[in-house]
Amino acid sequence: MKQSTIIWTLLMVFGGLGLISVQLFRGKGEVYVREVPVEAKSSSKTSPEQTYRWSTYQEVSAKEKDDPGISFSYSRTLGLWVSAFCTLAIFSFLYGDNPLYKFTESVFVGVSAAYAMVVGFWTEIVTNLYAKLLPGMARMSFFPDMESDVQSDLLYLIPLVLSVLLLWRLAPKGNWIARWPLAFFIGATAGIRLISYLETDFIGQLQSTIMPFIVFTADGSLLWIKSLRNTVVIVGVTSCMVYFFFSVEHEGIVKYISRLGIWFLMITFGASFAYTVMGRIALLSARLDFLFNDWLGI
């Protein structure tokens, strides 16, 4: 049997076992909710008092399914199975590229682009542009809580114009005009980064490195471990910076110092690699936790 066939068979067996276990552990792979009734009274003081009623639903554990007020949630159970399907479909890429993966990947691209648009629209555009330019209309629609004496801030016409120019980039003609808002964006980024990076990452880091090579206690005795550690840090920073300094030929003493710098950098990258591995594995275990715990209930 071909190696790939064995792998595929194993995955199939695992998938099948998973589904069987869902059946065995009835109540798993199902979502139950508690109904929370909401009763809200009209906020208007002038119109006659009116009461509005609706319900929200709070997810509960399957153990509570027989308690009063708890019901089976079709939408959330469907959601759980859709989640499991999406997870397995993406994992199927490990076997090789396939239509199932491509389908879910396409869905992901569409959903994430729309998600970002919707969030940007409601949080920034409606709240910080629409409500600033048309406070009266904003009060009548989305923000009834807004003070009635708030006036339009016409200064916000500037970002509105810049935003329209930015979107002009999608037009077939005259899209060079999008350079104007882009220039604002680039200029602002350069302006705030220049100061912050110099203050925190240049001066701040140099300040943190300025420390004594030799450290004594109050009674004058040498703290040689602390002294050694300080020396390692100072030598490390200096040698790495010498390595980054390409304006002089790396020959003679400079060559040895820069080589020491490379070693420090290798240690840095080794530790970074280890931490990256740690992170990636944590992400995998969280996903498998979803499959085994939330979906299959093993």
Partner: peptide, 14 residues
């Protein structure tokens, strides 16, 4: 204004 443009960048992306 910068933040508003960043929100419009989401729309541009879409």
């Amino acid at each position: 204004w910068f933040n508003l443009l960043a929100a419009f960048a989401f729309i541009l992306g879409g």
